[in-house]
Amino acid sequence: MPWDEGLVNSLVYEAPDPGTGRSLGYAKAINEALDIALAHDPGVFVLGQGVDDPGAMFGTTRGLQEKYGAARVFDTPLSEEGMMGVCTGAAMNGMRPVYMHNRPDFILLAFNQLVTHASKYHYMDNGQTTVPMVVWAAIGRGWGSGAQHSQSIQGLLLGVPGLKIVMPSTPYDAKGLMLAAIADNNPVLIFEHRWLMKKDGTVPEGFYTVPLGKGIYRRRGSDITIVGASHALEVALQAANKLAADGIESEIIDLRTLKPLDEQIIAESLKKTGKILVVDTGWAMGGVCAEIGCLAAEKWFDYLKSPVRRVGLPDIPTPAGYTLEQFYYPDAEKVAGVIREMVKK
């Protein structure tokens, strides 16, 4: 059992998507997406450290090697940069690799290939080459994950032209966005959050996609706009539901894709509420919070009735210990406090 399995198992979610239909676990939804992609496109292959081990990458790759063979679903050497280059070279020649990582922290080893090669070839060779590849990782948190196993690196990659960045928050989206990412002709990063992995939700059977670059309203309200993705959105939803009892109605936008960014939905909501809070699982400084906050000030200043606020991580490495962690991560209480302050003004 992975070291933080007990912790993740203990998380309880209220299904944000209580629609009718089949209910499926988050990891299983991803597993189904990979299964469908492997079955439908012989160019798809899945690789990563331990994709064929008993843990099966949190269950996302379970059974795939048995079904599709060791040539198309394989464990890799511990060579992140090399394997990212292998994926790039394969994608440049018509394959659609899906490169799974346990944690985003390991992708940092492969920045040369990801940032300087995979994202550049299509532009650099004037469109002769496309690089359709998916790089997947699950952000860690808790149980001593600490400074080197909990990093949310989407902010570091946001400014890299040519990349797409996806951060799902429901099993429905995890499957649909994975299938959209695999079908996309560009390098797409998918950052999951470890704490969402045990979430259940409605997941249709068969093939469907959730379009990249389109956000969705998770909650409607007129007092404040909250934008974000992944687990940060989960926390914001908890805060918003709590505040509804006090008559504060938050509008919550799940961006689903950070790059390309759905500016239209943010503008639409902000025009109505005049207040925007940006939440992210990563550092507030220079990241997703900073970028969207700046965008609001730059493009939609006339809509703003109060200063832009952000709730991300402080400019501090993640501490490993349990107590320090409680001070480090913003919880629903903290987000609710910020919302209250903003709405009061």
Partner: peptide, 22 residues
Amino acid sequence: GTSAIVAGAIPIAAGSALTAQL
């Protein structure tokens, strides 16, 4: 393909070869 980063094209050629093999 080429790379202006020393050794940058080496894993890419390996990926190209993996494609031929697959």
